[in-house]
Structures are given as C-alpha cells and as structure tokens.
C-alpha cells in the first residue's frame, strides 16, 4: 500500500464543489481553479502534476472504480483525432458560455436561472440564486460554468462505468490541453518527445 498524501483526498473537494452548487450557484466560480491551475502548472512547470496528483475529479472517478465494468475502452477514445476533436468541441461550448455571459452583461439577454445538461437538457436551478445578489453576468457565468462542470462529470461517470476507472482522463479536454502545452515546452529540449 502506497503512502497517502494530503492531495490524495482532493476528490472530497470535487464532491463539495458540486454539493455547494445545489445551495448557491455562485460557488461555481470556485471551479475556475480546475481550469486555471492545470494550465498554470503546465505553462510554468512544464508538467502534468495536476492530472497526476491534484485532479479531484480524476480521483473521484478512481474512488468510484468499484462501480465500473473495467472493460478496455475502444482505441478511438484515446486517439488523437478524438481527443483533439473533443477539445475543440469543448472549447467551443466554453466560448459559447462566455458569449452568453457577455450578452447578459451587455443587456442583450436576460439571466437564465437554469443549468443545461449535456448541452441539451435545461434543468431549472433557480433555488440556488436570489436575483440581484450580484451583477447578472456573474450569476449567468455561474450557471453556465456549473453546467459545463456537471456535464463533463456526467460523461466521465458514464465512461467510468462502461470502461476502466478514469477513462475520462484519456480524452479530458484539460488533460489534452495541458499535454499539448507540455509537449510544446519539452520539444525545444528533447527532440524525441
């Protein structure tokens, strides 16, 4: 049995993050950590320490590994075309979410107190926010970002059940993005990368 470190329990943070979003949607902003920290680590440190050690979501998938059929996922799931394609799709959806936030900020659209699951299904989520607490765009971003986080976790749990634990990691957009950054950074020094 390997020695446990403090960062081996970050899966609790992921549960807490989603739980907080059931009470107050503004907590969704805390999820920006999961976006910015891996990028900073990859750009500054040139490594994937976030995926390797600090990713609470990845750990949560591993913790839930008992509920997994543990089958090998089809090879296309880790193929470059799928990973890069999924990254582009995910970034487009992220861009769309930012655009919606901008529309609300500019007064061209109203705040929608709902989350969208799998980019399709609108779920009313109004009880987590009292209108007027903060500027509308701040709330809009919270709903949008929480939707994105919940959607990716749902997809992650589906593949976690069907295939091996942490299959999500093989096409996680953040993982793909940080690996690309690391490869760019390492290329100057090592040609074999």
């Amino acid at each position: 049995m390997k020695q446990k470190h403090w960062y081996d329990y970050l899966w609790i943070w992921t549960i807490l993050f989603f739980a907080l979003g059931f009470f107050n949607i503004l907590f969704a902003w805390l999820g920006m950590n999961d976006f910015l920290v891996p990028l900073v680590i990859a750009i500054v440190g040139g490594n994937k320490a976030f995926c390797n050690r600090y990713c609470g979501r990845g750990q949560l998938f591993a913790v839930c590994g008992k509920c997994s059929l543990k089958k090998q996922a089809p090879t296309w799931i880790a193929a470059k075309w799928f990973r890069y394609g999924f990254l582009v799709f995910f970034l487009s959806m992220f861009g769309n979410m930012i655009f919606q936030t901008y529309l609300v900020a500019a007064g061209a659209a109203n705040l929608k107190e709902a989350i969208k699951l799998l980019w399709m299904f609108r779920v009313p989520w109004g009880w987590t926010y009292t209108a007027g607490t903060v500027a509308d765009w701040i709330a809009q971003f919270s709903f949008g970002f929480y939707s994105l986080m919940l959607t990716s976790t749902m997809i992650g749990f589906i593949v976690n059940f069907l295939f091996k634990p942490r299959t999500w990691c093989s096409f996680c957009p953040m993982g793909t993005m940080t690996q690309i950054l690391c490869k760019i950074k390492a290329k100057g020094v090592h040609d074999h990368v």
Binding site: A42, G46, C51, G58, Q179
Partner: peptide, 21 residues
C-alpha cells in the same frame, strides 16, 4: 495521455510522467 494512473498503480515506483508528455 500522461494521466499518471499507471504511476499511481506501480508498486515499485518505476513509472514517472516525463515532462507531462
């Protein structure tokens, strides 16, 4: 994909993730 799952599983600590690649 350099996820590090193998590194965690290795009982001999023989695996590392080379520069995130």
């Amino acid at each position: 994909v350099a996820c590090g799952v193998c590194m965690k599983a290795c009982p001999k600590n023989a695996i590392s993730i080379y520069k995130g690649c």
